[in-house]
Design a protein around this nucleic acid. Structure first.
Length: 198
DNA sequence: AATTTGCCCAACCGCAGACTC
DNA sequence: GGAGTCTGCGGTTGGGCAAAT
């Protein structure tokens, strides 16, 4: 939901700060339409906004960009965030890149306000972390087993296990542009605890 | 009804790496 | 190759609002 224009929440220096007004949004959107979302300093100047380029970029990425999904994070999305965070840590932009329409800021906020608490609660509830971990391993093994369970071809599990994964290679591949979603979903099928064996 | 508390989230800051001249 | 500038990222801040007291 757009924030209603309010008085600046931060002390004024030379440039406008604080919440964006609908007029500012309009101006920014118009300039980006013609110049594209780059050269933010120029965009800010062309738009006649008394804002720094950084602020314009943030506004565009988090609010004005097309295809932004607003509203509740679905269970599916939450699950994906949890899995990706276990794998990647606080690399919000990478995580957001795997959730179409979601921004890194949104995911970071969601994590800080919802998920981090959930996880703490869970940790407190679980009597023995070792027990949980071994249960995770059993679950992963079961998943892998079922993945491998068809016909005489090389099993998917074998395929996966043959791959010489390392965490850094995974991260590198994430940086290589649009992710192969098929690979991604297969990858996420595996609990990251498998990688501790690799 | 008034005040306090806690949560949410938009927007800021500082830093590092990439890019340009 | 070095300096200056731009861009992108993660951490943090603080205003608004609803719930609790």
């Amino acid at each position: 939901m757009p924030m209603a224009p309010t008085r600046s929440r931060y002390s004024k220096r030379e440039a406008n700060r604080g919440a964006w007004t609908p007029e500012e949004d309009q101006k920014l959107a118009r300039v980006i339409e013609t110049h594209g979302p780059r050269r933010w300093k120029l965009v800010a100047a062309k738009a006649g906004l008394n804002r720094c380029g950084k602020s314009c970029r943030l506004r565009w990425l988090n609010y004005l960009r097309p295809n932004i999904k607003r509203g509740n994070i679905s269970d599916q999305e939450e699950d994906l965030i949890l899995r990706l965070h276990r794998l990647l840590g606080n690399r919000w932009s990478l995580i957001a890149g795997r959730l179409p329409g979601r921004t890194d800021n949104e995911i970071k906020n969601y994590w800080n306000s919802h998920l981090s608490k959930k996880i703490k609660q869970k940790e407190n509830q679980s009597k023995s972390p070792e027990q949980d971990q071994s249960q995770d391993l059993r679950n992963s093994a079961a998943r892998m087993h079922s993945m491998a369970g068809n016909n005489g071809e090389t099993s998917k599990r074998d395929e996966v296990m043959k791959t010489d994964f390392s965490r850094n290679e995974i991260l590198d591949s994430f940086d290589e542009g649009p992710l192969n979603l098929e690979w991604m979903s297969r990858f996420l099928e595996m609990d990251e605890s498998w990688f501790s064996f690799a």
